[in-house]
Structures are given as C-alpha cells and as structure tokens.
C-alpha cells in the first residue's frame, strides 16, 4: 500500500469519526424526547430543523411532535426527516401568509392548512375578512381539503361563513355537516358549496332575490 493511499484512508477515518462525534454531539444536545425515541442520526437531523426554525422565531414543538409521531408509527428515518422538514417549511409559509402578528396557535393551525394543500392566498384572505383568532377557521379549512373538497371551494366556504360572522362553533358545525354529506355520498365540492349557502341565506339568493322562484325548480 502506498504512502498516499494510507494517508487517504487515515483522512477518511478521521472524517468519519468526526462526523460521528458531531452527530452524537448534536443528538446529545437535542431535545431529550428526540434522543430517547429516535436513532442519533435522525435525532440530529430533526434537531437541525428545530434549531433553524427556532432561529426564525417559529414554534418548534410541532416539529418535535411530528418526529415523535413518526417514531410511534414506525416510519423510516428518511420519512421522519421529510415530514419534519415539510412541517418546518409550512410553519414559515403560514406565518408569512397570516402576518407577523399571528399567534403561535394560528401559525400551527395555518401550517396544518398549508400541509393540506390550502393555497397561502386563502390564509391571507381569511386574515383579511375575519377579525379575531383564526385557529378554528384554519382547522376547518384544512379538514375540508383533507376530505377532498377542492381548495378553492373550501376556501370560498370558510370565507363566506367568516364574512357572515360565523362563530367558531358554527364553523365546526358546518364542517360536521359537510362531513356527513360526503360520508353519505355527496360530492365533496357540492357538499361544501351547498352548505355554504346557509350562510348566504337559503332563500332568495342574496344578490338577486328575483330568482327565488326558480330555486325550487320553477324553470323557464
């Protein structure tokens, strides 16, 4: 074996040891819950995202929870890190969409909506039309999209209800009814739009009451 070859091997060994020590150090410094439930490499990677997210002033508990959830469900290391990364990015997107003054709970709920494929513009629109906390509207929005209501229809439904000053309990009731309709066989978009009309007024269409007769099939 040549001298150069031996030198290369030694360098590789040192680098490997260094990386292992680094991972162990990060894992040691990681949240003890991560260290207890994840292998050192995964814990280290998750911790990196936690530190990065913390640096942005975003809540980090959802990241740890997401990692622990993956561990509980026997997910692979790659899957856990991917889920944590997606959660971290969603938190940042949610805050950008909802505004810097958003509460931690709103950001967490908004991240759930972003992960459910709700467009960030819908979050911004919701902030614009609804005074007060947005936690429940965001949860309802994410739920509707999870139930295959198209994102635009889901956003329209929640925005319409919000403009009508629907309270949190009314929004949760709206969500429950849409879920029942979908479970019973209605198309998700149809269920959402039909239920949304209860906030527009089920009777004469609010914008054009003159059409009221045909609502029950008067026809031409």
């Amino acid at each position: 074996m040549s001298r150069a070859h031996r030198g290369l091997r030694r360098a590789a060994t040192v680098a490997g040891l260094g990386a292992a020590i680094l991972i162990a150090a990060v894992a040691w410094a990681a949240d003890p819950r991560l260290a207890a439930r994840l292998d050192p490499a995964t814990a280290s990677e998750v911790q990196r995202w936690v530190v990065d997210t913390q640096g942005q002033g975003l809540p980090t508990e959802p990241l740890i929870s997401k990692a622990l959830e993956g561990a509980a469900k026997g997910a692979t290391s790659e899957r856990i890190v991917a889920a944590v990364r997606a959660q971290a990015l969603a938190l940042g997107t949610a805050r950008a969409a909802l505004g810097d003054s958003s509460s931690e709970q709103e950001i967490v709920a908004g991240a759930g909506a972003i992960l459910a494929s709700v467009p960030r513009e819908s979050l911004t629109a919701l902030r614009a039309v609804r005074p007060g906390p947005l936690v429940v509207p965001l949860v309802v929005l994410a739920d509707l999209v999870t139930r295959n209501v198209p994102p635009s229809a889901a956003a329209q439904t929640v925005l319409t209800a919000s403009r009508a000053r629907a309270r949190d309990a009314e929004l949760l009731d709206l969500r429950r009814k849409i879920e029942q309709d979908i479970t019973a066989g209605a198309a998700p978009a149809d269920a959402a739009i039909a239920r949304m009309r209860s906030f527009r007024g089920t009777g004469p269409a609010p914008k054009e009451p003159k059409r009221a007769l045909r609502g029950a099939g008067g026809g031409p």
Binding site: K66, E69, G70, K73, A75, R79, A82, A83, A86, Q87, G112, L115, A116, V139, V140, A142, D143, T146, R147, L172, R175, R176
Partner: peptide
C-alpha cells in the same frame, strides 16, 4: 366527529 388531517405518514 373530529376534523382530520393527513399525518405525513
């Protein structure tokens, strides 16, 4: 009876 969301797993 609860809202639901994909868990990423």
């Amino acid at each position: 009876g609860l809202a639901s969301t994909a868990d990423g797993y």
